[in-house]
Design a protein around this nucleic acid. Structure first.
Length: 729
DNA sequence: AATATTCCCGTTTTT
DNA sequence: CGGGAATATT
């Protein structure tokens, strides 16, 4: 270990506040850093890691666990910049657990070549499990079973443990499905996301030798966003630091937003009890936001009853008032915001300094459309969506089968992709034969005897088997080349090459996948296909956001955690949408936690450095229907927080608030407007009405024009004219 | 067997 | 609204 000079160490304490310094200086024993938003937490933990590496240990003995891969990458870069030597382990819980399970697979009781099953894969297996249990999806939807199994695993209940509890009728059925699901998963050599954590926790608790070995390796453990750890993660942390107790947890109870996936805010609240003698450092000075932004955020979070009081303060400027935008509907909201952002960019603001946040992904679409109309460069945080595309999943399925022939979810996916004449009947026969012999479908592919019994499809199956055999050597190649080989030899390239749609080109996505793999192997030259598959299974939406400043960023509030932007727009502040509440028919009252929703809103607001705008629409279209909305109670709570409200919100100033519709247009007889009506628009030309949505006061129509474009208009406002048939010719 | 079409359903957030 | 499954068509 290269000890550094005293002056170099002093450097690590430069420009720090007293509490920050305290945290950096702490070496041994449990440490809890309660870090409010923008309090310089990242800086503190990177400096502390560097300090540890300079004084009491070596980088290789430090383990840092972050919430996203992006955060991991950034932390590594920041620590590298302090040049205290390499060798630190940094990653997410899921990525680290996957690595650990792979390395110690025999002790963990998992196959070396396990594949990671994502949500779709899991649903898929659950459907099969439901069939095996002879339970049709009547009372038990795959989604609800999925949710329940996830809950169980997050709480560290195995199928047997789940079944052993006191169960009601519904839970007993789920218990059977859970058991079957686990069996299927094991047969296929698959681990779902929750398994990665649960298996690791179990292994560490059962195998004390391994636990001790790891504890000796990782002598200083740091866990970021500790408020969002679940039972399994908590246990892993506990087991890894059992003897040396060098756990540094950082987080903020006010930013706990993952309760719905098993995160237990209690983990951070009881840290001091769990780790006796823990040192606690509070970072409450905010270096990020203006006074007015912080004031508003603080006023909001004060509404939470179950809360440890915390005082946030800043020496930053007062800044402009936090603004509220009341819009007519989603299009109006998107249009106003796009226009304003376009102005700001013209005034010299870098697009990358601007972000739009929303509660649900579906809100991104209108914003996206408005941005396109205004010619604004934007990026949407959706790495996962990319990996969910058909063509991408197809390619990955090939690799998965090559790595793990037991992975029948993937095998079934590719056996007839591209179409090669293996249809439902052949597939069914294959399944039966495999079950009868107690072997995998894969084992039949090149078995002449089995293939003969398949009838006409046999030859095709045999060819498919040959293809897989031919592709197998690709596994030895670096991920990028392996991908290229598979894409070109499997016929997927040809399949997707000829698709004609211009808007989303599957073939281009395949290229993007290849280049993503190439980037990956640039970072990790030793990486194998298995590593790449693992990596791609564990990407998060936010991992994909670029920081090059050239584009406005659109993302969900959840993805926004840990980030910051100069100018933030938070849209959709409507009752039921921002405090999100599902329609009340749900008998399982899991959701409906307004306090968590308030924290989520708080997280969004505190991302803003210089300006913050909160918007709502009076009419909101969600899943195809427009509904009148009610202003978010959160906005009402901010009444006295010094926000700037729109004109109409202030007391009546004697000015008419009645909007004069359709300037200069004659009154419209709505009976004349039906689906299929031909219309003419001055710019777009001739078009046909596709659909009509009657809102409260306005009627929207979707029109498809001759030039192929589709637009949505408000009938009363748009310059649309009916066209009679004889006019067309 | 493959492709085109219709219809029906779920309704967050994510590793 | 949009994806997936069921159904119709070639």
């Amino acid at each position: 270990m290269q000890k550094r000079s005293d002056s170099a160490i002093d450097q690590l304490f430069a420009d720090l506040s007293d509490p920050q310094r305290e945290a950096v200086a702490h070496t041994d024993g449990p440490l809890l850093i309660l870090a409010g938003p923008g309090s310089g937490k990242t800086r503190v933990i990177t400096r502390r890691a560097a300090h540890l590496a300079c004084t009491v240990t070596e980088p290789r003995h430090i383990l840092a666990i972050t919430f996203t891969n992006k955060a991991a990458k950034e932390m590594r870069e920041r620590i590298d910049a302090l040049s205290v030597g390499e060798g630190m382990t940094v990653g997410t819980f899921h990525a680290l657990c996957a690595k650990l399970l792979r390395r110690h697979h025999e002790r963990a009781g998992v196959p070396m070549n396990f594949t990671i099953f994502d949500r779709d894969d899991r649903r898929n297996v659950i459907k099969t499990a439901l069939e095996r249990c002879n339970l049709s999806a009547d009372n038990l939807s795959p989604a609800s079973v999925d949710q329940e199994i996830g809950r169980a695993k997050n709480a560290m209940f195995s199928a047997a443990q789940y079944a052993a509890r006191n169960l009601d009728w519904r839970e007993r059925m789920i218990a059977r499905v859970y058991e079957c699901y686990e069996r299927l998963l094991a047969e296929m050599g698959g681990l779902d996301f929750d398994d990665l954590l649960m298996r690791t926790a179990l292994t560490l608790s059962r195998d004390d030798e391994l636990r001790a070995e790891l504890e000796n390796r990782y002598r200083y453990v740091l866990i970021d966003e500790y408020q969002d750890t679940n039972a399994a993660q908590y246990q892993i942390a506990r087991l890894l630091t059992q003897e040396h107790l060098n756990l540094c947890a950082t987080g903020d109870p006010d930013q706990s937003i993952y309760g719905w996936r098993g995160a237990d805010i209690g983990n951070i609240l009881s840290f001091e009890r769990d780790y006796a003698g823990a040192k606690v450092v509070r970072l409450e000075q905010n270096y990020r936001s203006t006074k007015r932004i912080l004031l508003a955020a603080d006023a909001l979070i004060a509404g939470n009853v179950m809360r440890k009081e915390k005082r946030l303060w800043t020496q930053n400027d007062e800044g402009p008032a936090v603004r509220v935008l009341e819009c007519e509907d989603g299009d109006d909201e998107a249009g106003q915001i796009a226009e304003e952002i376009a102005d700001r960019i013209r005034e010299g603001v870098a697009p990358g300094d601007i972000a739009v946040f929303y509660r649900v992904n579906s809100l991104s679409r209108v914003i996206e459309e408005a941005f396109l109309r205004h010619g604004l460069a934007y990026q949407i945080a959706r790495g996962v969506e990319f990996y969910n595309r058909k063509e991408i999943k197809d390619v990955l399925a090939y690799l998965r089968v090559l790595v793990n022939p037991s992975d029948e979810v993937s095998l079934v996916r590719i056996i007839n992709t591209p179409p090669r004449g293996i249809g439902a009947t052949t597939n069914e026969r294959l399944r039966d034969r495999a079950a009868a012999r107690g072997v995998r479908i894969f084992d039949l592919l090149l078995d002449d005897e089995a293939i003969l019994s398949l009838g006409r499809g046999g030859q095709k199956v045999r060819e498919f088997g040959g293809l897989l055999r031919q592709l197998a050597p690709a596994l030895e190649l670096p991920p990028g080349q392996a991908l290229e080989t598979v894409i070109s030899h499997s016929g997927l390239r040809a399949l997707y090459h000829e698709t004609r749609e211009a808007d989303d080109a599957p073939s281009a996505n395949l290229d993007e996948l290849i280049s993503a793999a190439s980037d990956f192997q640039q970072d990790q030259p030793e990486a194998t296909v298995i590593d790449w598959l693992e990596h791609s299974a564990l990407v998060s939406d936010v991992d994909a956001v670029r920081g090059d400043g050239g584009a406005v960023t659109l993302m969900t509030l959840h993805s926004a955690k840990g980030l910051e932007f100069a100018h933030v727009y938070l849209i959709g502040l409507e009752d039921g949408l921002l405090p999100f509440r599902r329609a009340e028919q749900s008998w399982n009252s899991n959701g409906g936690d307004d306090e968590e929703e308030r924290r989520l809103c708080f997280v969004g607001m505190t991302r803003a450095k210089k300006s913050l705008t909160l918007s709502r629409a009076r009419y909101r279209m969600l899943r195809g229907v427009t509904q009148r909305t009610t202003r978010s109670p959160f906005l009402d709570e901010l009444r006295d927080a010094g926000l700037e409200w729109p004109e109409s919100e202030k007391a009546t100033k004697g000015r008419s608030t009645i909007v004069q519709p359709s300037m200069g247009h004659p009154p419209i007889d709505l009976a004349e407007w039906t689906i299929g009506t031909l219309v003419r628009h001055p710019q777009q030309g001739l078009g046909r009405i596709l659909s009509i949505h009657r809102g409260g006061r306005r009627t929207h129509v979707d029109v498809e024009f001759e030039n192929g474009s589709r637009k949505s208009w408000v009938v009363e406002f748009a310059d649309l004219r009916r066209v009679d048939f004889d006019e067309v010719g």
